[in-house]
Computed example of a mutant assay.
Amino acid sequence: MTMMSVTFEVMFRVEAEVESGEVVCVVGDCDRLGNWDPHHAVVLSRESSIPGQCRKNNQQMENRCDKENRKTCDVWRKKVKLCGMKNYNYRYFVCQIIESDSEFTERTVKVIRWETNILPRVFSPADYMKDPGKYDAEIMKFGEYGGKNHVTNGWLTDQSEIHIRIHGNPIRMWKPKYRKQTYRIKCTPLDQRYKDHLDEDEEEDEWGTHVSPPSTFTKVLVSTLDERHINHCVQSESGTIFEAGSYMIFTAETTEPESLGFQFDFYVNQEGVTPKHIGYCYLLPVDLKKSNDTKTVPITGLNHKPIGQIDRTAADTVQTKSPYNQL
């Protein structure tokens, strides 16, 4: 007697907060769902987009960090064929995907956020058969299931993470009028892969004082530590305030650390006044050859003359991989 195989067209549908360039995926414990490997996960399609936040607690966190509202509250979906009557375990995650130019290498997947409830989500064919319409119409919320809400930052898969640490009292301006100021620091990633493809006129006309174009695939986050707590923030247009004696860390993830440089812009911070841009400095890949090193970098004014320096700027590179079954 031949056994009939039952096939289900399952609608995976979830509401999640995403930023520009991010997508939502589903991964699980079968071939159709990628066998917990994010490289083979199912990429969902955006169904709708609503400006604003999905959850109030995230809005409060962003207000504390003075973060710009760049997220949208989106619904993502995809139908996947699953065969058989066994239960399927799965989780959603938010990521950035960079497709490979070669058929011999996999796409690059940067896991941004993933669901971390101890028990995974479960698709039960038996429950589905009782009311398939109800299941297909349900919109799940990213991170919320089993009466709990747990979301954690992703891990390093194909990329390296660079930390640039500034602490103590490192900003030394040479002019007396600048020495007692409070400064804001903005860190911009620079893509050094293009430096050999620009002639002198193109570089000056297009980028001005920049030595390279900004890296569009790299986002820099800033963390500040004071006596009360740690703030993890996305940078504002005029950077983040650095108080003497505090500890600031810029974090960037990249698949090509040997090609990533950084521009630091310095702004004078005054209460009730628009921050004034006074200078900048560079930390280039040639300065980041060691996995952990400390540098003193000169600060150049807007007239292209040196106005000071920043001491004890430490940089380190982290390269780790986490097992896919942690999804």
Score class of each variant (00 low, 15 high):
residue 21 G to A: 07
residue 169 N to P: 00
residue 104 F to Q: 07
residue 238 S to P: 03
residue 26 V to Y: 02
residue 191 D to V: 01
residue 100 S to F: 04
residue 301 G to N: 06
residue 127 D to W: 09
residue 116 T to P: 00
residue 17 E to D: 08
residue 71 K to F: 03
residue 280 Y to D: 01
residue 159 Q to E: 15
residue 24 V to N: 02
residue 265 D to C: 05
residue 269 N to I: 00
residue 89 N to I: 00
residue 308 G to V: 00
residue 85 M to G: 02
residue 56 K to N: 02
residue 2 T to E: 15
residue 103 E to R: 02
residue 259 S to M: 10
residue 189 P to K: 09
residue 227 E to G: 14
residue 139 I to G: 02
residue 234 V to F: 08
residue 104 F to K: 12
residue 18 V to C: 13
residue 81 K to H: 03
residue 195 K to F: 03
residue 187 C to L: 05
residue 289 K to L: 08
residue 167 H to P: 00
residue 233 C to V: 14
residue 79 K to A: 07
residue 263 Q to T: 00
residue 225 L to W: 11
residue 98 I to T: 11
residue 7 T to Q: 15
residue 301 G to T: 09
residue 162 I to W: 09
residue 45 S to V: 09
residue 42 V to P: 01
residue 287 D to Y: 08
residue 179 R to C: 08
residue 220 V to L: 06
residue 51 P to T: 02
residue 228 R to K: 15
residue 52 G to D: 06
residue 261 G to S: 02
residue 68 E to C: 09
residue 306 P to E: 05
residue 252 A to N: 05
residue 30 C to L: 07
residue 34 G to F: 06
residue 130 K to H: 10
residue 184 R to H: 02
residue 138 E to Q: 12
residue 84 G to N: 10
residue 130 K to F: 10
residue 249 I to F: 04
residue 280 Y to T: 01
residue 154 G to W: 06
residue 11 M to I: 10
residue 120 P to K: 06
residue 25 C to Q: 09
residue 147 G to S: 09
residue 313 T to D: 03
residue 256 E to G: 01
residue 124 S to C: 12
residue 228 R to S: 12
residue 181 Q to P: 03
residue 95 C to L: 03
residue 103 E to F: 01
residue 151 V to K: 04
residue 96 Q to M: 05
residue 211 V to P: 07
residue 308 G to M: 05
residue 170 P to V: 04
residue 295 K to E: 00
residue 270 Q to K: 12
residue 28 G to E: 13
residue 251 T to Q: 14
residue 81 K to W: 04
residue 237 E to G: 07
residue 152 T to V: 10
residue 314 A to N: 10
residue 176 P to N: 11
residue 33 L to V: 11
residue 94 V to T: 05
residue 287 D to L: 03
residue 29 D to Y: 06
residue 128 Y to D: 02
residue 188 T to N: 12
residue 137 A to I: 03
residue 80 V to E: 10
residue 63 N to F: 02
residue 108 T to P: 01
residue 47 E to F: 11
residue 179 R to D: 05
residue 84 G to Y: 11
residue 226 D to C: 11
residue 131 D to E: 06
residue 101 D to H: 07
residue 189 P to F: 11
residue 209 T to I: 13
residue 289 K to W: 01
residue 203 E to W: 07
residue 256 E to F: 00
residue 136 D to N: 14
residue 322 S to Y: 11
residue 15 E to F: 04
residue 40 H to Y: 07
residue 131 D to K: 00
residue 294 T to R: 02
residue 247 Y to D: 15
residue 156 L to K: 05
residue 17 E to G: 15
residue 33 L to A: 12
residue 180 K to S: 15
residue 175 K to H: 13
residue 7 T to P: 01
residue 114 W to M: 13
residue 203 E to Y: 06
residue 10 V to N: 00
residue 304 H to M: 13
residue 124 S to M: 04
